[in-house]
Protein backbone atom coordinates (compact mmCIF):
# COMPACT_ATOMS: atom_id res chain seq x y z
CA UNK A 1 0.00 0.00 0.00
CA UNK A 2 1.24 3.46 -0.86
CA UNK A 3 0.54 5.72 2.12
CA UNK A 4 -1.51 8.83 1.36
CA UNK A 5 -0.32 12.05 2.94
CA UNK A 6 -2.59 15.05 3.51
CA UNK A 7 -0.38 18.11 3.16
CA UNK A 8 -2.43 21.01 4.45
CA UNK A 9 -2.51 24.30 2.54
CA UNK A 10 -4.17 27.68 2.50
CA UNK A 11 -4.21 30.96 4.43
CA UNK A 12 -0.51 31.60 4.09
CA UNK A 13 0.97 28.13 4.49
CA UNK A 14 3.73 28.21 1.91
CA UNK A 15 5.99 25.14 2.12
CA UNK A 16 3.42 22.70 0.77
CA UNK A 17 5.20 22.15 -2.55
CA UNK A 18 8.45 20.89 -1.05
CA UNK A 19 6.63 19.06 1.75
CA UNK A 20 4.65 17.15 -0.85
CA UNK A 21 7.87 16.51 -2.77
CA UNK A 22 9.71 14.94 0.17
CA UNK A 23 6.85 12.54 0.90
CA UNK A 24 6.72 11.57 -2.76
CA UNK A 25 10.51 11.07 -2.72
CA UNK A 26 9.95 8.79 0.29
CA UNK A 27 7.52 6.59 -1.58
CA UNK A 28 4.21 8.07 -0.43
CA UNK A 29 1.49 9.85 -2.36
CA UNK A 30 0.97 13.43 -1.24
CA UNK A 31 -2.13 15.57 -1.79
CA UNK A 32 -2.34 19.30 -1.36
CA UNK A 33 -5.36 19.65 0.92
CA UNK A 34 -6.82 23.08 1.45
CA UNK A 35 -8.09 23.26 5.03
CA UNK A 36 -11.50 24.38 3.81
CA UNK A 37 -11.89 21.20 1.76
CA UNK A 38 -11.82 19.33 5.08
CA UNK A 39 -14.15 21.81 6.74
CA UNK A 40 -16.73 21.64 3.94
CA UNK A 41 -16.64 17.85 3.80
CA UNK A 42 -15.28 17.57 0.27
CA UNK A 43 -12.34 15.62 1.72
CA UNK A 44 -11.96 13.75 4.97
CA UNK A 45 -8.79 13.32 6.98
CA UNK A 46 -9.72 9.72 7.74
CA UNK A 47 -8.91 8.87 4.10
CA UNK A 48 -5.24 9.68 4.76
CA UNK A 49 -2.54 7.82 6.66
CA UNK A 50 -0.24 10.76 7.41
CA UNK A 51 -0.96 14.45 7.98
CA UNK A 52 1.63 17.18 7.47
CA UNK A 53 1.26 20.82 8.34
CA UNK A 54 3.95 22.62 6.37
CA UNK A 55 5.76 25.82 7.15
CA UNK A 56 4.62 29.24 6.15
CA UNK A 57 3.06 32.35 7.57
CA UNK A 58 -0.53 31.32 8.17
CA UNK A 59 -2.52 34.52 8.71
CA UNK A 60 0.72 36.48 8.57
CA UNK A 61 1.75 35.36 12.08
CA UNK A 62 -0.51 38.09 13.42
CA UNK A 63 -1.56 37.52 17.05
CA UNK A 64 1.34 35.09 17.39
CA UNK A 65 2.52 32.56 14.88
CA UNK A 66 0.23 29.60 14.33
CA UNK A 67 -2.49 30.88 16.59
CA UNK A 68 -5.20 31.78 14.09
CA UNK A 69 -4.64 28.63 12.02
CA UNK A 70 -4.50 26.62 15.25
CA UNK A 71 -7.91 28.05 16.12
CA UNK A 72 -9.31 27.16 12.71
CA UNK A 73 -8.24 23.55 13.31
CA UNK A 74 -9.12 23.46 17.00
CA UNK A 75 -12.61 24.86 16.46
CA UNK A 76 -13.37 23.99 12.83
CA UNK A 77 -11.83 20.52 12.53
CA UNK A 78 -11.72 19.39 16.14
CA UNK A 79 -13.26 15.95 15.64
CA UNK A 80 -11.37 15.07 12.46
CA UNK A 81 -8.01 16.07 13.96
CA UNK A 82 -8.59 14.29 17.28
CA UNK A 83 -9.85 11.23 15.46
CA UNK A 84 -6.76 11.15 13.26
CA UNK A 85 -4.41 11.31 16.23
CA UNK A 86 -6.37 8.84 18.32
CA UNK A 87 -6.28 6.42 15.39
CA UNK A 88 -2.50 6.40 15.81
CA UNK A 89 -1.66 8.02 12.50
CA UNK A 90 1.56 10.04 12.19
CA UNK A 91 1.38 13.84 12.14
CA UNK A 92 4.20 16.27 11.47
CA UNK A 93 4.27 20.04 11.80
CA UNK A 94 7.24 21.93 10.44
CA UNK A 95 8.05 25.50 11.45
CA UNK A 96 4.70 27.27 11.21
CA UNK A 97 3.13 23.80 11.25
CA UNK A 98 4.91 23.11 14.56
CA UNK A 99 3.72 26.45 15.92
CA UNK A 100 0.17 25.51 14.91
CA UNK A 101 0.42 22.11 16.66
CA UNK A 102 1.75 23.73 19.84
CA UNK A 103 -0.80 26.55 19.90
CA UNK A 104 -3.70 24.13 19.34
CA UNK A 105 -2.39 21.90 22.13
CA UNK A 106 -1.51 18.79 20.07
CA UNK A 107 2.12 19.21 21.11
CA UNK A 108 3.62 18.35 23.53
CA UNK A 109 0.09 17.08 24.01
CA UNK A 110 -1.44 14.53 26.35
CA UNK A 111 -2.85 10.99 26.27
CA UNK A 112 -6.42 12.28 26.04
CA UNK A 113 -5.65 14.53 23.05
CA UNK A 114 -7.43 17.25 24.99
CA UNK A 115 -6.12 20.07 22.78
CA UNK A 116 -4.88 22.12 25.73
CA UNK A 117 -1.94 24.43 25.13
CA UNK A 118 0.89 23.78 27.59
CA UNK A 119 3.95 25.20 25.81
CA UNK A 120 4.66 27.97 23.36
CA UNK A 121 7.10 29.28 20.80
CA UNK A 122 8.10 32.77 21.78
CA UNK A 123 9.90 35.42 19.77
CA UNK A 124 13.57 34.55 19.26
CA UNK A 125 15.82 36.34 21.73
CA UNK A 126 17.33 38.13 18.72
CA UNK A 127 13.90 39.68 18.26
CA UNK A 128 13.78 38.93 14.58
CA UNK A 129 13.36 36.39 11.83
CA UNK A 130 16.45 34.51 10.70
CA UNK A 131 17.38 31.99 8.06
CA UNK A 132 20.48 30.04 9.08
CA UNK A 133 21.72 26.47 9.16
CA UNK A 134 21.84 24.55 12.41
CA UNK A 135 22.76 21.07 13.58
CA UNK A 136 20.10 18.96 15.30
CA UNK A 137 20.66 16.00 17.56
CA UNK A 138 17.92 13.50 18.41
CA UNK A 139 17.09 11.77 21.65
CA UNK A 140 17.81 8.07 20.99
CA UNK A 141 15.39 7.09 23.79
CA UNK A 142 12.48 9.03 22.37
CA UNK A 143 9.34 7.17 21.27
CA UNK A 144 9.22 9.48 18.23
CA UNK A 145 8.68 7.34 15.12
CA UNK A 146 9.82 10.17 12.84
CA UNK A 147 13.33 10.37 14.25
CA UNK A 148 14.02 6.72 15.03
CA UNK A 149 17.64 5.81 14.40
CA UNK A 150 18.74 9.37 13.68
CA UNK A 151 21.73 10.95 15.38
CA UNK A 152 22.36 14.32 13.79
CA UNK A 153 21.21 16.23 10.73
CA UNK A 154 21.97 19.67 9.32
CA UNK A 155 18.95 21.76 8.38
CA UNK A 156 18.01 25.42 8.08
CA UNK A 157 15.87 27.35 10.57
CA UNK A 158 13.71 30.07 9.07
CA UNK A 159 11.63 31.69 11.76
CA UNK A 160 11.17 34.62 14.10
CA UNK A 161 9.24 32.78 16.81
CA UNK A 162 10.92 29.53 17.69
CA UNK A 163 11.96 29.80 21.33
CA UNK A 164 10.39 26.80 23.03
CA UNK A 165 9.13 27.70 26.51
CA UNK A 166 6.52 26.72 29.03
CA UNK A 167 5.19 28.43 32.13
CA UNK A 168 5.18 25.24 34.20
CA UNK A 169 8.77 24.09 34.83
CA UNK A 170 7.66 20.67 36.10
CA UNK A 171 6.24 19.91 32.68
CA UNK A 172 9.53 20.32 30.90
CA UNK A 173 11.14 17.76 33.21
CA UNK A 174 8.32 15.37 32.49
CA UNK A 175 8.65 15.83 28.75
CA UNK A 176 12.40 15.26 29.00
CA UNK A 177 11.81 12.13 31.00
CA UNK A 178 9.37 10.71 28.49
CA UNK A 179 11.64 11.46 25.52
CA UNK A 180 9.35 14.14 24.12
CA UNK A 181 12.08 16.79 23.81
CA UNK A 182 13.24 14.86 20.80
CA UNK A 183 15.25 17.34 18.70
CA UNK A 184 17.81 19.77 20.09
CA UNK A 185 20.27 22.29 18.72
CA UNK A 186 23.89 21.23 19.22
CA UNK A 187 27.32 22.60 18.42
CA UNK A 188 28.54 20.48 15.49
CA UNK A 189 32.15 20.83 16.61
CA UNK A 190 31.34 18.76 19.73
CA UNK A 191 31.33 15.00 19.46
CA UNK A 192 28.07 13.06 19.38
CA UNK A 193 26.20 12.82 21.68
CA UNK A 194 26.33 16.32 23.08
CA UNK A 195 22.74 17.49 23.60
CA UNK A 196 22.60 19.52 26.79
CA UNK A 197 20.13 21.40 28.92
CA UNK A 198 22.25 24.54 29.23
CA UNK A 199 21.27 27.04 26.60
CA UNK A 200 24.00 27.13 23.96
CA UNK A 201 25.35 30.46 22.72
CA UNK A 202 23.76 32.27 19.79
CA UNK A 203 23.79 31.35 16.96
CA UNK A 204 24.40 27.65 17.73
CA UNK A 205 21.01 27.93 19.36
CA UNK A 206 19.41 30.44 17.00
CA UNK A 207 16.47 31.37 19.19
CA UNK A 208 17.71 30.58 22.73
CA UNK A 209 15.07 27.91 23.18
CA UNK A 210 14.85 26.39 26.66
CA UNK A 211 17.06 23.31 26.88
CA UNK A 212 17.96 23.95 23.22
CA UNK A 213 14.72 22.32 22.14
CA UNK A 214 14.13 22.42 18.40
CA UNK A 215 11.35 19.87 18.15
CA UNK A 216 9.04 17.80 20.36
CA UNK A 217 6.74 14.83 20.03
CA UNK A 218 3.57 13.79 21.83
CA UNK A 219 3.55 10.96 24.39
CA UNK A 220 2.89 8.38 21.65
CA UNK A 221 5.75 9.55 19.45
CA UNK A 222 3.44 9.77 16.46
CA UNK A 223 2.86 13.51 16.49
CA UNK A 224 6.08 15.39 15.88
CA UNK A 225 6.86 19.03 15.30
CA UNK A 226 10.02 21.01 14.87
CA UNK A 227 11.10 24.54 14.01
CA UNK A 228 13.87 23.70 11.49
CA UNK A 229 13.06 22.55 7.99
CA UNK A 230 14.16 18.97 7.24
CA UNK A 231 12.29 19.13 3.91
CA UNK A 232 14.68 21.91 2.85
CA UNK A 233 17.55 19.44 2.89
CA UNK A 234 16.00 16.88 0.57
CA UNK A 235 19.03 16.70 -1.74
CA UNK A 236 22.76 16.90 -1.12
CA UNK A 237 23.14 19.99 -3.30
CA UNK A 238 20.97 22.03 -0.95
CA UNK A 239 23.31 21.84 2.05
CA UNK A 240 24.84 25.05 3.39
CA UNK A 241 28.40 23.95 2.71
CA UNK A 242 27.96 21.20 0.13
CA UNK A 243 30.44 22.86 -2.24
CA UNK A 244 33.12 22.31 0.43
CA UNK A 245 32.37 18.62 0.81
CA UNK A 246 33.09 15.54 -1.30
CA UNK A 247 29.61 14.34 -2.04
CA UNK A 248 28.07 11.24 -3.41
CA UNK A 249 25.06 13.19 -4.61
CA UNK A 250 21.61 11.96 -3.70
CA UNK A 251 18.99 12.44 -1.01
CA UNK A 252 19.83 14.98 1.69
CA UNK A 253 20.12 14.61 5.44
CA UNK A 254 16.54 15.72 6.11
CA UNK A 255 14.95 12.86 4.18
CA UNK A 256 15.34 10.17 6.85
CA UNK A 257 12.55 11.79 8.87
CA UNK A 258 10.02 11.39 6.08
CA UNK A 259 11.23 7.92 5.10
CA UNK A 260 10.76 6.86 8.74
CA UNK A 261 7.11 7.86 8.78
CA UNK A 262 6.37 6.28 5.43
CA UNK A 263 7.98 2.99 6.51
CA UNK A 264 6.11 3.15 9.80
CA UNK A 265 2.81 3.27 7.93
CA UNK A 266 3.84 0.61 5.45
CA UNK A 267 4.96 -1.75 8.18
CA UNK A 268 1.85 -1.23 10.29
Amino acid sequence: MTPKVAVLSGFGINCETETMAVFEMSGARADRVHVNRLVNGELNLSDYQIMAIPGGFSFGDHLGSGRLMGNRLRFGLRDQVRGFVRDGKPVIGICNGFQILVKMGLLPGDEEVSLTQTASLALNDSGHYENRWVTLEFDPKSPCIWTAGLERIRVPVRHGEGKFVTDDPTLIDRWAESGQLVARYVDPTNEYPSASDNILPYPVSPNQSWRNVAGVCDPTGLVFGLMPHPEANHSTWLGATWTREQNEHGQGEGMAIFRNAVSHVMEA
Binding site: E18, V22, E130, N131, H229, A232, H234, L238
Partner: peptide, 10 residues
Amino acid sequence: RSYDHEVIAQ
Protein backbone atom coordinates in the same frame (compact mmCIF):
# COMPACT_ATOMS: atom_id res chain seq x y z
CA ARG B 1 19.97 36.78 7.10
CA SER B 2 16.45 37.89 7.94
CA TYR B 3 15.20 37.17 4.45
CA ASP B 4 14.04 33.65 3.88
CA HIS B 5 16.34 32.59 1.08
CA GLU B 6 15.48 28.87 1.10
CA VAL B 7 11.72 28.38 1.05
CA ILE B 8 10.60 26.08 -1.81
CA ALA B 9 13.72 24.01 -1.01
CA GLN B 10 15.56 24.83 -4.19
